[in-house]
């Protein structure tokens, strides 16, 4: 499964897109766990002390922030879904 990273997350994962080995069915939460296991430095960037995604971190599934999907971070990712992970970003 391909995951796109942005901004300050890129230097940590070493590029724009990273391939992850996941099982047949993986939820957003499980995917994030797999990601931080492979890149431990991402843990403090993505997750708070309780292990939940920070509100300013965005895990997009096809452009929609996972917490706003009907099943939230328990949403099962489908083959072909586009996954983008952003740290806090703003400007204007």
């Amino acid at each position: 499964m391909q995951v796109n990273f942005y901004a300050t997350l890129r230097p940590i994962v070493g590029g724009r897109t990273v391939e992850f080995d996941v099982g047949e069915q993986v939820t957003v939460k499980q995917l994030v766990d797999i990601i931080v296991e492979r890149f431990p430095r991402l843990r403090k960037e993505l997750l708070n002390a309780d292990g939940n995604l920070y509100p300013h971190v965005h895990v997009f599934i096809n452009g929609r922030d996972a917490p706003y999907l009907p099943n939230g971070v328990e949403t099962v990712i489908k083959p072909g879904d586009t996954i983008d992970i952003f740290p806090a970003v703003a400007g204007g």
């Binding site: 942005y6 901004a7 965005h58 997009f60 452009g63 952003f86 970003v89 703003a90 400007g91 204007g92």
Partner: peptide, 11 residues
């Protein structure tokens, strides 16, 4: 500020 370009496009 241009850190925004990718996220606004993605969403």
């Amino acid at each position: 500020t241009n850190v925004l370009m990718n996220i606004t496009s993605a969403m």
